[in-house]
Design a protein around this nucleic acid. Structure first.
Length: 478
RNA sequence: CGGGGCGUGGCGCAGUAGGUAGCGCGCGUCGUUCGGGACGACGAGGUCGGAGGUUCGAGUCCUCUCGCCCCGACCA
């Protein structure tokens, strides 16, 4: 049955990843270059993530809006840094209705441009702000290289775009939303992340500051899991968005933008998966509990499935997402393996022996022994059990990250370490972009983040030996 | 854009000197099975990515073309 086996993570992590995504029926490649078809099991993970984010957006005073997918080229090209950063990855529509268009239309790679073009009409006074808007949608970026979920040419995300009357308020907003991202990554997806600030080289085109959350995948490579940007007045200036402040002065509006994408479905796979396949955090698992009935004959089937159905409805009544796998065409062993591959957090096995004893066998995807429990106890304790699996996944990922986060004592040690072991490497840096580029060139690692508030590293730059001005955390990243 | 690879039943692949397409999985029916990826019998399913060309004859040779995947540089 070798065709059913997955590659192991250690053999080739990217191959393992692609196999799991396809075999667990999360997604597959789409017909167009770098595109992706998300299947129900994968999309549901995104839906639960969306809901968690959206609830928090609402709780922090945000409202949802929707802006157009197609953006006239001339509109896209107003903010100089923004154009320079995005031009290479913009897909353009040149024809419509069978005719060549007079002006090509860009398919949005992000929506700052249309939105700030519009905000000009919505903002006259400081009393019109803050504008706390979010958009759920899709964007297209023509990347050279794609990877399912992590970097497809089209992806799903939310993008928040806020306008403020003061710099301080916008800064505060950018950090508030960064904290929302941290919370969703850690509490919902069970992926521990570092919050930080990007170096100038890694900043979003057009931003004054970019604040990322950075996670570590199971192969010790880093992944940017979400970003929040303080845009200063750059977009307000490019799109001429001014307002009258309380002192009667005309001023440019202050902006933030922040995004979190379907990439995080891939991150969840990469952060928690093992050689048996997915391990999904209960908070986003499309199926939290699966019940596998076991029987040898029709006489056994009746009572077993009858009790299984009762358990199913008792769990569903507690708002637990539960599936009774009563398919006749597969035997239990097959089902165990399949649901493990798909990452279901908890499995209940129920056979004739259990029916006779009034019990079930419960297994957690995170490991440990199967346990036998009275049916009532298993049902009553299920919410706690799911919470404990959620916590176990986070604890695992955190332990892994801590074991793979190092303080740099010398450049050579860092260069060798990041090559052999990957992981995060933290140390003093001079703050010079040329030095940063040299280090990246030599190590293939990039600065993932700096502390949000600059800190004196109290030492010299590991590479050039000049006085350190920042504590930089480096890693090889996806 | 550089480097590699691949397009043949739904999926994964084989196809050796050019002779009219095969294997595994999956799928359908029936039977035996069912507590860690079951087995048997029968069966359905293919314009070999596309277009030209060479040849009596092309999955195979030649030319052109389209597409995808992987590795790098760019990025959520």
């Amino acid at each position: 049955m070798s065709t059913n086996r997955l590659p192991t993570q250690a053999d080739d992590f990217p191959a393992w990843y692609v196999e799991v995504v396809k075999r667990a029926e999360l997604a597959e490649h789409g017909p167009a270059r770098g595109s992706m078809i998300m299947r129900p099991h994968g999309y549901a993970i995104w839906e639960h993530t969306q809901r968690a984010l959206d609830d928090r957006f609402k709780a922090t005073g945000h409202e949802n809006v929707y802006f157009p997918l197609l953006i006239p080229m001339s509109l896209l090209e107003r903010e100089a840094d923004h154009v320079e950063g995005f031009a290479p990855q913009v897909a353009v529509v040149t024809h419509g209705g069978g005719e060549k268009l007079e002006e090509p239309l860009a398919i949005r790679p992000t929506s700052e441009t249309v939105i700030w073009h519009t905000y000009k009409r919505w903002i006259q006074s400081y009393r019109d702000m803050p504008l706390l808007y979010n958009q759920w949608g899709n964007v297209v970026r023509w990347e050279m290289r794609t990877r399912l979920f992590l970097r497809t040419s089209e992806f799903l995300w939310q993008e928040g775009h806020t306008a403020h009357a003061t710099s301080a308020e916008a800064q505060e907003e950018a950090l508030r939303m960064l904290e929302v991202y941290r919370e969703v990554a850690e509490d919902v997806l069970a992926i521990p992340v570092f919050k930080g600030r990007k170096s100038a080289a890694e900043r979003f085109p057009g931003a004054v500051e970019t604040y990322p959350i950075e996670g570590l995948m199971r192969d010790a490579r880093a992944l940017q899991c979400g970003t929040s940007h303080f845009l200063g007045q750059n977009f307000a200036k490019a799109y001429d968005v001014t307002f009258l402040n309380a002192d009667g002065q005309q001023e440019y509006a202050w902006a933030t933008s922040w995004g979190f994408s379907s990439r995080m479905v891939g991150a969840t796979v990469m952060a928690h998966g093992d050689d048996a396949g997915l391990r999904l955090p209960p908070a986003v698992a499309p199926i939290q509990v699966v019940i596998v009935p076991i029987y040898r004959s029709d006489e056994e089937r009746g009572p077993v499935v009858g009790i299984a159905e009762r358990i199913r409805s008792d769990l569903a009544a507690q708002d637990i997402r539960v599936r009774l796998d009563d398919r006749d065409q597969h035997r239990p062993g097959f089902k165990f393996a399949e649901w493990e591959l798909k990452g279901v957090p908890v499995r209940i096995e129920l056979g004739p022996r259990d029916v006779a004893a009034g019990q079930v066998v419960v297994a957690e995807r995170t490991g440990g022994e199967k346990v036998q429990l009275a049916i009532e106890a298993a049902v009553a304790g299920m919410r706690d059990r799911l919470a404990s699996v959620q916590h176990a996944l986070y604890a695992d990922a955190l332990a892994y990250r801590e074991a793979n986060t190092h303080d740099i004592t010398s450049f050579d040690e860092f260069a060798a370490g990041v090559e052999e072991r990957g992981g995060f490497w933290r140390g003093a840096w001079c703050g010079d972009a040329t030095c940063e580029a040299e280090i990246s060139e030599l190590t293939k690692a990039t600065i993932r983040f700096l502390p949000i508030e600059p800190e004196d590293p109290g030492g010299v730059c590991m590479h050039c030996g000049k006085p350190g001005t920042e504590i930089a955390t480096w890693a090889r990243a996806y």
